[in-house]
């Protein structure tokens, strides 16, 4: 009987999950990454569609992209948003588990310190391998 209840809960959950995918507030992208020239002139890969959604309506901002290792679990990545939003100069954060990338929008007067950003990821349990300023709006 108890196995039966668990077996009933599971498909109901899948149904809820699919509903969420259809109508959820979080945007999903299958990821068509393109080469983008960053502020320092180096080339970096970004998902143009996701990036355009992220910066829509934004101004006076610096956009930073971080490549992250070990970011495989939503529950374990919660601290990324929480920690960055403690900085009053952070306007927006987007975590993408499928590509292992995080976009951070800072206010334009923020002085970007890549070591500080890497340490935030380390404190959350992940490893930031590459931090790039990809745009100044």
């Amino acid at each position: 009987m108890r196995y039966l209840i668990v077996l009933i809960i599971f498909p109901m959950n899948l149904l809820l999950a699919n509903t969420h995918h259809d109508h959820g507030s979080h945007m999903h992208h299958e990821g068509h990454e393109h080469v983008h020239k960053s502020v320092d002139g180096t080339n970096t890969q970004i998902d143009e569609s996701k990036y355009n959604d992220f910066i829509a309506g934004m101004s006076d901002a610096k956009i930073v992209k971080v490549d992250v290792k070990g970011m495989v679990c939503d529950f374990c990545a919660r601290g990324i948003e929480k920690t960055f939003y403690q900085d009053k100069l952070v306007k927006k954060v987007d975590v993408d588990l499928s590509t292992g990338k995080v976009l951070i929008a800072y206010k334009s007067d923020k002085k970007i310190n890549t070591d500080e950003i890497k340490n935030i990821f380390l404190d959350n349990g992940q490893t930031a391998t590459n931090v790039v300023i990809i745009m100044e709006l």
Partner: peptide, 29 residues
């Protein structure tokens, strides 16, 4: 699941303690 989605895992757990001295295996979600 993507970030902020509902995530689901089908799990199997196997436990043994030296009091009961046998492996107890069962599924969970």
């Amino acid at each position: 699941g993507e970030y902020n989605d509902l995530h689901t895992w089908i799990m199997l757990k196997s436990k043994r303690d030296t009091i009961n001295d046998q492996w107890d295996t069962y599924p969970f979600i």
